[in-house]
Nucleic acid binder design. Structure first.
Length: 625
DNA sequence: TTAGGGTTAG
């Protein structure tokens, strides 16, 4: 394109510069600019205007402004071009300044300002400018409509369009696309149809973008047949048409037609794949979701630039993001990392809130970091002026209790400025059970079942504590109280996903269709685990039965059934993933550790409180939970 | 013969 300047003149250069603008190619544009200066065409107004436009399109406002500032004579095109650049990059200050300095306002400049106001949410200013405009053209109306549409004033956008039409202003495909978007959001199928009629009448119906906007509008309004008809009869379709039709079917719950269309697509891009995958997920078809996701990866499809741009968009992490990170890490046993993130959060200048402290104290609790937890608890008030609430106290009681500091925990409860809730007492009760302080446990347990006579967990804990003392009469007494109050123990339930189906196991469950295989696997587990040195922790069983029966009962806990099934029905290297409704019991925790080693399978178990990652004989919670 | 309006797919 460059070369000797023999055949270039100030009519050719603008065309070349313009070509760079259309391709938004700043590099080539700069080369052209240098060339122009070198051969002495830099003072031509027409050439200069195209340079301003080229830099503006490339959003390089510094160079655009340099050209503008050096121009000896400024015509309206120069003013409009530099203004358009500032509007494009959203620089309100500079745009207002240029608009104010213009020797003569014109419709094009005002239209740009309406667009800018629309971008910035200044609907009032856009309206005012529009109304004051002596000569409104099609673009003025269109800019106002899109300003309203962008600011979620869909009804108003439609009303302005109606007025535009009534005033005899010409309507083109650009403004109709805007209006159709409003119809889609409002589910205004009737208006959409009227517009469709209008579009056909004025003969612009074959624009692909318009076709796509209609497909989207009809399927958003639930008029899938109309969308389908349009799609089938269209002369030219592009990738967006196909993707719109697929997501239209999915939006209307038509998964099969969506899949048929997906399969017959000439070319599938990342949008097609993700539309179909999320469509499956939305309609609870999980095995297909996973299968398609795998297939997508096998096809080598990766998230595109747009996907990345949309998901990376949160530039400054807010307090909720930090909270989620702190809580999530702690829950998965990465306590140090979690506390590290808390420090980093403060370094980044984000102010912690009360939820942050739930996460931080919770992190300390997961690892028994009593001193550190106390320090954070004290700093809440002293440094951050956050009054601890009942949950923070509960968390501290739990931290102390789990660490075996039962007296300190009880003293803290007594010193609370508010009435302790049952969860706080419950935490202490759990700690008493864990550390074998049966007397304190019984005293607190009896108090708790009075406070909350319908809570099954407290009765069960108390009954277990009493059973640990060997006081079977006491156990029967508590069972009696439960019966009296109609309290039923929530059965332990473990869930595991295999091949897209969720399987549920209750303790002692025999209903699973593959129960025979599970039984065989349970026997194999028992043998292997014993060889590895596993000894059942029969303290967990609170029935007045003999030791051998206790072992059998232990081996029918829902977690173990789920693990056995996981060993049969899933294959490595994927971990066995289990969700349990209650806290995992000691014996199952130990058994899971042994299984992870003896069978070489990782197990990820989420219980009521946290995640346990079992790997090669140990757990991420370091046996502290 | 340079300057202004749009969106549709995840």
């Amino acid at each position: 394109m460059l070369g000797k300047n023999g055949d270039r003149d100030n009519y050719t250069y603008p065309i070349l510069v313009q070509a760079c603008a259309i391709r938004a190619s700043e590099f080539e544009g700069k080369q052209m600019h240098n060339h122009i200066l070198k051969f002495g065409f830099g003072l031509d107004v027409y050439v200069q205007n195209t340079l301003i436009n080229m830099y503006s399109v490339c959003e390089n406002m510094r160079d655009a402004r340099n050209v503008f500032d050096e121009m000896p004579v400024l015509d309206s095109v120069a003013w409009n071009s530099i203004l358009a650049g500032y509007v494009r990059v959203g620089d309100v200050e500079q745009a207002k300044c240029i608009f104010g300095r213009m020797p003569e306002r014109n419709t094009i400049a005002s239209n740009s300002m309406i667009v800018l106001f629309g971008k910035r949410g200044c609907v009032g200013e856009a309206w005012r400018l529009f109304q004051e405009l002596p000569q409104k053209d099609m673009v003025s109306w269109s800019a106002l409509i899109s300003c309203l549409e962008k600011n979620e004033m869909y009804e108003e956008a439609l009303a302005v369009f109606v007025k535009m039409f009534a005033n005899g202003i010409m309507v083109d495909e650009v403004v109709v696309v805007s209006v159709l978007s409003a119809c889609a959001t409002l589910s205004a199928a009737h208006t959409g149809k009227l517009i469709h009629g209008l579009v056909v009448k004025i003969g612009i119906e074959s624009y692909v973008n318009l076709q796509n906007a209609f497909i989207h509008m009809y399927s958003s309004c639930g008029e899938i047949m109309a969308a389908h008809k349009l799609f089938n009869e269209a002369f030219n379709l592009d990738q967006i048409s196909w993707n719109s039709m697929i997501s239209g079917y999915l939006k209307c719950g038509l998964v099969e037609p969506a899949k048929t269309l997906f399969d017959s697509m000439p070319e599938k891009d990342v949008v097609s794949w993700s539309a179909m995958i999320s469509g499956y997920a939305q309609h609870d078809r999980f095995s297909e979701t996973l299968a398609l996701f795998q297939e997508m990866q096998l096809c080598g499809i990766r998230p595109d630039e747009t996907t990345l741009r949309f998901s990376r968009r949160r530039q400054k992490k807010g307090v909720s993001t930090w909270n989620a990170l702190i809580l999530g890490l702690a829950m998965n046993g990465l306590v140090e990392k979690s506390l590290e993130m808390f420090s980093e959060m403060k370094t980044c200048g984000v102010t912690p809130n009360e939820i942050t402290f739930m996460g931080v104290i919770g992190a300390c609790r997961h690892m028994g970091l009593v001193d550190e937890g106390r320090r954070h608890f004290d700093s809440m008030m002293q440094e951050h002026k956050i009054e601890p609430n009942v949950k923070h106290y509960g968390c501290m009681v739990d931290l102390l209790g789990r660490a075996g500091m039962l007296k300190e925990a009880e003293d803290l409860i007594e010193s609370m400025p508010m009435t302790p809730d049952v969860a706080t007492w419950g935490a202490l009760l759990g700690a008493c059970k864990k550390h074998g302080d049966h007397d304190r446990g019984e005293r607190i347990g009896r108090k708790l079942i009075e406070l909350d006579p319908n809570h099954d967990g407290f009765h069960v804990l108390l009954s277990n504590i009493v059973a640990s003392k060997g006081d079977w009469n006491g156990v029967h007494e508590i069972r009696g109280i439960m019966m009296q109050h109609g309290v039923i123990k929530t059965p332990g339930c473990s869930m595991i996903e295999a091949d897209g189906v969720v399987h549920e196991f209750l303790a002692g469950d025999k209903k699973h269709p593959r129960m025979k295989e599970i039984e065989v696997m349970l026997d194999e587990m028992a043998q292997k685990l014993k060889m590895e040195g596993y000894a059942p922790d029969t303290n967990e069983v609170s029935f007045d039965i003999d030791e051998e029966e206790k072992e059998t009962a232990l081996f029918r806990h829902s977690e173990k059934l789920a693990i056995a099934f996981g060993l049969i029905a899933t294959s490595p290297p994927s971990p066995i993933r289990i969700i349990k409704n209650l806290r995992i019991c000691n014996d199952c925790h130990m058994a899971a550790k042994f299984v992870s080693k003896a069978f070489g399978r990782d197990i990820v178990l989420r219980d009521r409180h946290r995640f346990h990652h079992f790997k090669q004989g140990s757990c991420s919670c370091n046996d502290y939970w």
